[in-house]
Design a protein around this nucleic acid. Structure first.
Lengths: 99, 99
DNA sequence: CGCATCGGAAAGCCTAGACTTACCGTTCGT
DNA sequence: ACGAACGGTAAGTCTAGGCTTTCCGATGCG
């Protein structure tokens, strides 16, 4: 899930699709990698349920998949709550002997 | 940012810290990797502003950093909106010729 | 009916980076 | 002051995986 978004190129694909559905070739046109590379990234994203594809003739149109997006959103929402609570304790004695 | 959370071990460190502050050795004790490995992961997480450290004697206590957490939360919130809008269009003609 | 386009699969290369061991500086305890 | 514990750094190894080129099946078009 987050493994899929760990790669910069894959994240670029993901962000391109956020702007709207696109075919494989159209995605590759905006990226500095070859079309097969994009295909491989899309496969990973699809397995992570972050994108889904639709066959239109010989073209495959990819779209963001709300399922994976909801999952990852929930993941961080969960930690957000915990971190907030833990942070509330720390505001009293600011621990700034960092770095 | 998301690069940092792309690695499974690093994500494990992150999730351990979500349960509460911990020293390096305490983190390493719950993971199948050596202590220096944990140190290296913490360095990456710190550079991504996902954790912060506090010196307590010779120990370094690490905590989740709300800054990075807020950033990553905002990142997905942004795409969540876009995906929702794009998804609203697609519900009418269900594109299910997938896989 | 081929010819062209689109996209996934296979094979191979090559670098990024995750991990280990070894070492050293720093701080605490006695 | 000395020894021990904690943790960051350095150096080196080794694998995962990102990318390319090549190829092939499938669909649309003339």
């Amino acid at each position: 899930m987050l493994d899929a978004l760990g790669d910069p190129t894959r994240r670029a694909v993901f962000e391109l699709l956020a702007a709207g559905p696109r075919s494989v070739a159209e995605i590759a046109a905006d990226l500095p990698v070859s079309r097969p590379a994009v295909s491989q990234h899309l496969k990973v994203l699809k397995e992570a349920a972050l994108v889904s594809s639709t066959a239109v003739g010989t073209r495959r149109v990819y779209t963001l998949d709300p399922r994976g997006l909801a999952a990852v959103r929930g993941y961080f929402e969960q930690f957000w709550q915990q971190a907030l609570a833990a942070f509330a304790d720390a505001v009293e004695n600011p621990p700034e002997e960092d770095q």
